[in-house]
Nucleic acid binder design. Structure first.
Length: 200
DNA sequence: TACACGATTTACT
DNA sequence: GTAAATCGTGTAT
């Protein structure tokens, strides 16, 4: 059923994985409901040396401990007092790299996603907290393997052409100083996807 | 214990 | 364009 194996996430090149996630489908089976979407926007967080990363400097806390898990583990965290953000841990155990999923095109269970979001159209899941709400992701899905039956990715061979990939700096990481300028954000310039935060 | 703030979204001027 | 919403987490007392 095309499920992506854990070995895919064990790649130490987080930028390569972040870019190759564009076009993959993310599935969730939460509250007995199946929902899915095609990944159209990602951001890489490059571990201990990346000032924008929660694990910068090798920081280990109760929250960041998930980032030190082996590649293919989900990292969900809660922020702004109301939003959940979904990440995929990559690389090997104790190398805290992760990829933030920033946008999807809903593809399965769209009515459910609209109901969860109480929204329609292209505002449904074009942001990292929006897609968590649409897919039903909360802290309950933190630190679980993406090889299971709750959250997983599938590959149908769909992927953007190189010319349709926009690479630009990450969003909302001004606190990271010069690292805020790194080109670690990848957007699929797809006709059915309009990022809520356009580059430039 | 206390406090400042966030890998955001939404509503409002 | 700006501001409010809202609380877990990290770091300092």
């Amino acid at each position: 059923m095309n499920k992506i194996p854990l070995s895919f996430y064990e790649n130490k090149d987080v930028l390569a994985v972040a870019q190759s996630l564009l076009g993959k489908s993310i599935y969730t089976m939460i509250d007995d409901v199946l929902t899915a979407g095609i990944i159209t926007e990602t951001e890489a967080y490059a571990g201990k040396t990346d000032k924008a990363s929660h694990a910068y400097g090798g920081r280990r806390t109760k929250r960041t401990e998930t980032m030190y898990m082996p590649g293919g583990t989900s990292y969900v965290y809660f922020t702004y007092g109301m939003h959940h953000l979904f990440n995929i841990v990559t690389s090997v155990k104790d190398d805290p790299q992760a990829i933030l999923i920033r946008g999807i095109i809903p593809s399965k269970g769209i009515d459910i996603q609209k109901k969860r979001r109480r929204q329609n159209g292209n505002h449904l899941a074009n942001g990292p907290a929006k897609l968590c709400q649409a897919l039903g992701i909360t802290l309950k899905q933190n630190c679980i393997p993406l090889s299971g039956e709750i959250v997983w990715l599938q590959d149908f061979g769909e992927k953007p052409k190189q010319k349709d990939i926009i690479i630009c700096p990450r969003v909302g990481v001004d606190y990271a100083g010069e690292d805020a300028l790194l080109p670690y954000r990848f957007i699929w310039n797809h006709p059915d996807y309009k990022s809520a935060k356009k580059p430039q």
